[in-house]
Nucleic acid binder design. Structure first.
Lengths: 329, 329
DNA sequence: CTTAGCACTGAAGAAAAAAGAGTGCTAACG
DNA sequence: CGTTAGCACTCTTTTTTCTTCAGTGCTAAG
């Protein structure tokens, strides 16, 4: 691809990102300083290379997924960010009391506002984390709160009504035993370990040990299934994009965003920024997912921006890079 | 309204709920056992009374908001529920370990599936609840989890990074002081009480008391602002309804569902079932909100079903009544 | 009061026509 | 030989016209 073609691709991608309208040859004569006929020639060459597409035989050109990809990889320059936005984000990180994951969530929320795309923060799948601590906090004589702390710093609490025939002291005692024998166990193994390590031990000292046992099993079960380490920002921002004007498309995308099985596939292990355009996104041919994993101070996860393929890539990438630089400190 | 008119309204409402198509006079001759001309006469009378509407001069009739209202108040009979569904709901409540609010959330999720409407569970606004307990759980030497328990049984946890120059013991000490002096304080007053009751006390014993003070203020602040006691079931079910085929309508409704300020207005204080049809719903002229408050064992809140005005009122009301009966036990 | 009959209405759909944006190709130009 | 003006052609979009049809309101008779 020669430099004029690159310039041409750049202008087409940027114009289409801006207006969501196919770009014709005449519209670019000012930018390229050559006649529309020349531009047409170059365009048809870019089309043969697979970087451009036509919506019909005599329409203007639209970037293909490959076109966006080339743009992202070779042409795009980091975007100057709005000072005000930067400041907002920086303020969040400079609030040193905030846990990293909370700070990230707040930031992604703001980024959703800035960009009008949807953002997702995905805590690392709890299967791989280990039990760090289990606390029982009595609320009254019939209720306690079970607090499970996991190695990645994630905390989950659940209110429990104590079964009849059991008293708070017994529940607390059981939690002590669990803490003694199960700390460090991967969350996914807790259920089986409970049966062999804990059940026999409490059987010896608690009358209604079956109730207590199943009570704690429930706590862990729920925790394992939990989708709660998914955070969304600007869930409906997608609707603002002109390409999602068909109800079916909206249904499709919103439906996928509701489906935890699909969303969790976004999870990334790469601390670099990865961009999945169109079909690659696994959402829709017109959707792009930009994602990046983070890891710091024992917390890890993935952050992602979901938007149309017609995305302001420069802005999004620059924003994520900014977040990355903040995380690293 | 005479009894034939009631019967007519009933048939029109039920037919429209079923098919989402305006109902013409001929379609009802079998049901009413009179000629289409007679039905037309009655229809135009019902229209004058404000219970029916036409989409255009020569179209069939559609129930107006008032028509639905009359149907709900005077005509509708409780609906026989599917035994399988009942069983599912009952199982949840019979799981005695579940906190009430968790049980309700699960139930509403199931009801969303059954009905294809959206459900909402709204914890009572924390302004009116009092602080019951504050726990600090050390995670490591720089991190703790602050756990705030509120009188309604709601628990919120937040991970905090301890400011430099402060140690865990000081944080724990502060939490003990807060527990000593602030328990029973309405959540909305905690912030001001912190300043006058706690700040002076910790100033005496902690060097970096300013940091510790603002740290705890942050915990409570976040808690007060928190939207987290809103639970949604079947958020996108609305999209399945044929009346929401226009993108603008979807945007409008989904947007409102994302806006905490609007959603929290659903909050109800009436333990009876209230139905807000059309404009009254505050969502859209084609939306109905059915809501009811609950209160038991110190927990309280509102549950609501949001769907089209063309809603299966009998089913929804019967389901909510069922939930109510379960809560009362 | 009920009903058959019929003219009338307005939406929805199909078909045809007109307008417009943009292309590809050819031939001329420096 | 790359660049450009010119022009026929293609396909979408918009507008217009026509047709169909479900359903109404009204009238007059039972």
């Amino acid at each position: 691809m020669n430099s004029r073609q690159e310039k041409l691709l750049k202008e087409i991608v940027e114009s289409y990102i801006k207006d969501a309208r196919p770009v014709g040859s005449k519209a670019l004569v000012n930018k390229l300083k050559v006649s529309s006929a020349t531009i047409r020639n170059e365009m048809s060459e870019l089309e043969e290379l697979g970087f451009l597409e036509k919506t019909h035989t005599s329409s203007g050109r639209v970037p293909s997924s490959a076109g966006y990809k080339y743009y992202v990889d070779n042409i795009m320059k980091p975007k100057e960010l709005n000072g005000e936005d930067i400041l907002k984000l920086q303020t969040i990180f400079s609030n040193s009391e905030l846990a990293l994951s909370d700070a990230i969530k707040e930031c992604m929320n703001i980024i959703s506002d800035i960009t009008n795309y949807t953002s997702i923060v995905l805590g690392k799948d709890s299967d791989w984390n280990t039990l760090k601590q289990l606390n029982i906090i009595p609320i009254d004589e019939r209720k306690v709160v079970a607090l499970v702390v996991v190695s990645n710093g994630h905390v989950e609490n659940k209110q429990i009504v104590i079964p009849v025939g059991v008293n708070v002291a017994e529940v607390v005692k059981t939690s002590e035993i669990i803490n003694k024998y199960l700390i460090g166990t991967p969350i996914k193994d807790v259920t089986s370990k409970m049966e062999f390590e804990i059940k026999p031990r409490i059987a010896a000292i608690i009358k209604e040990y079956e109730s207590v046992y199943s009570m704690f099993q429930n706590v862990f079960n729920e925790f394992t299934e939990k989708n709660s380490n998914v955070f969304f920002g600007g869930r409906t921002n997608m609707l603002k994009q002109p390409e999602f004007e068909s109800v079916d498309k909206i249904k499709n995308i919103m439906g996928k965003l509701e489906d935890y099985e699909i969303v969790k596939k976004i999870e990334s292990n790469d601390e670099g920024i990865n961009i999945y355009i169109g079909e690659e996104s696994e959402f829709d041919k017109d959707v792009t997912v930009v994602k990046m994993s983070y890891q710091a101070g024992g917390e890890e996860g993935t952050i992602a921006i979901i938007g149309p393929t017609r995305m302001e890539y420069d802005k999004v990438v620059t924003l994520l890079n900014f977040i990355k630089s903040q995380i690293e400190r």
